[in-house]
Amino acid sequence: MNERRKFILSMARGIGLAAMGALAWSAYVGEVRSAPLILRPPGALPESDFLRTCIKCGLCVLACPYDTLRLAAPGDSNPIGTPYFVPRDIPCYMCEDIPCVPVCPTGALNEASLKDETGAWEIKKIDIGVAVVDVEACVAFWGIQCDACYRACPLMDEAIYLKYEKNERTGKHAFLKPVVNTNVCTGCGLCERACITEKPAIFVLPNAIALGKVGDHYIKGWDSGDEARVAGAKAETTQTKINQQSALDALNADEGF
């Protein structure tokens, strides 16, 4: 009897300890894996898949010729051991052979997502994030000529273009406003690096944070490509049965009161 009681008690204690450990452990893991603003290497899977697939070996870091990538150390407030970069320090220089990707042993950096149909690298497919302009802090929006980000962009006139506008304040000058095409921008961060303001007025954010989504029910009717999405659509016509009784009869019928 005593032995049995001891056994049950020690089992209960073990389970209690395990439950407590699991609570603290899972709370910590749940906390440290959320870093919505982190910028991953090219070809990274969507963040939640990336986190479970990256083995934190650092081969991408070793492969990067510009020392752009680093592994998150304790205290960096990023999921520990995973690769990321800070464009203001060192941006991604968009190497044409993307050396950081093929070395990934787990597929957390997905080679296929960066290749065209012929199997050749297509650096325009890199999609780390998008550049966002703070129009209040950008001196080009004040009317001062600065095209640092525009000229730094490896996809000049595609990812960042200059929008010319008349400067009504002076009446004789032009604004040269940098505008980002978020469909083209790779998120390399060369613009953020080049920005002349104290804290960059153009900076890269992950797609999940910076991009909106229209929803499938809006169609660009003027775009034949987009219009094609509704080419095969069938409209469903419904008919409501109309009550044939006269209004007076319906009101006099007690039903429904």
């Binding site: 699991a22 452990w25 899972s26 910590y28 893991v29 749940g30 440290v32 894996r33 939640s48 986190l51 479970r52 083995i55 934190k56 999921p79 520990i80 051991g81």
Partner: peptide, 14 residues
Amino acid sequence: LLSFAMGVAAFEMI
């Protein structure tokens, strides 16, 4: 168990 439950390699995080 926690890796399975949380969808991320749990011990590798700590």
